[in-house]
Design a protein around this nucleic acid. Sequence first.
DNA 1: TAGATTGTTAATCGATTAACAATC
DNA 2: TAGATTGTTAATCGATTAACAATC
Lengths: 213, 213
Amino acid sequence: MGKNYTNISMAVIRRLPKYYRYLGELIDKEVYRISSRELSVITSFTASQIRQDLNCFGGFGQQGYGYNVEELRDEIGKILGLGANYNAVIVGAGNLGQAIANYPYFSKRGINIIALFDTNPKIVGMKIRDINIYDVENLTEYAKENNVKIGIICTPETVAQKITDSLCAADIKGIWNFAPIDIKTPKEVKVENVHLGESLLTLLYLLNEKDKD
Amino acid sequence: MGKNYTNISMAVIRRLPKYYRYLGELIDKEVYRISSRELSVITSFTASQIRQDLNCFGGFGQQGYGYNVEELRDEIGKILGLGANYNAVIVGAGNLGQAIANYPYFSKRGINIIALFDTNPKIVGMKIRDINIYDVENLTEYAKENNVKIGIICTPETVAQKITDSLCAADIKGIWNFAPIDIKTPKEVKVENVHLGESLLTLLYLLNEKDKD
DNA sequence: TAGATTGTTAATCGATTAACAATC
DNA sequence: TAGATTGTTAATCGATTAACAATC
């Protein structure tokens, strides 16, 4: 379980996974010690910002020395809540749902994908990497019975809210939403959106933008 | 081609696709006219912010009336650069690359996926939805000869920078990067990242967060 | 000890919100 | 015209950066 901190801004929270990643790369390179100054070169955040960010959670460094890379990464891991295990299901076993089911990254992060769900009778009953595909009709019941804490929505937008409601009825904790819609949940169910269409449109905008400098 | 504006902050730019999406939904619902006040309810941006955002690009509304939904969406479409056509390639024909190749959304946005690339000899030569899979070795040459403007990177991180360099050598305009690494490009080649791992870690953090209110 | 670098406060910058005159 | 709502300026809020005393 991650420690709990309050009043951390989303700007800071979204940098934490980046710190975690950069520090992991440093560990791979057998770098044991790093200063905020050196880290600023790697991350392109300012040294000042790095120190500010880290001090939201406590003093992990040592004056005159810097930070111990491995220790710092572990601390950030704890803050992020790594180490816990969660059962998760993917709803929508189309191309994207299948790609995510095949994503090896999950188990490394303590996420166990224990089932897929779909409406298409042609694929219900099949398996993807030993994971069964069930009928969406059984979603709430299955999630309740199997201690599912995370739902991953890879359905078309038209059914995304209905799926969300089914998941929330099963007392899950969070939804990773790939459908291009803002789903509504009770406030105790957290939502993280991956809006690919918006990301692509942002790229299109940047392509046409006059260069700034 | 999109119009060119300068000094628009990324905060504003990233809201544009959202406006575009919400306005599209309103058109589907046959809503013809909307005030910033009404739009604020739908988007959960403040009315003030909406008016500020839109006025970065010009006055699209009418005092006492509000905005014409269809006209406003079209204007935002122009700002985003919709209407242009771009040839694009996907590099990395694994699960994610295939899922993206199958994503019907692209052609609607003027993006033509004309080829996939991979290193795996078992799949080079195959097709996905009539799109050929070529050897990565031929990437630069192919991109030059076929007026490729967008590269979509779905490879493991280990080769992502090399692929980036091959793409940049072919004079492309932008990269949509799904590899969990910060790729480096000359400044005229724009990059939009989709870092799924970071998104997932953010969700994990939120799961453990004490509720704020 | 002297040098380095953090933790933390204060200053700056930028983004959001509020307010209101202009005007449809 | 009166009411509504924009466009836009000014005020506020929050996030980033700078500075430096504390201290390893």
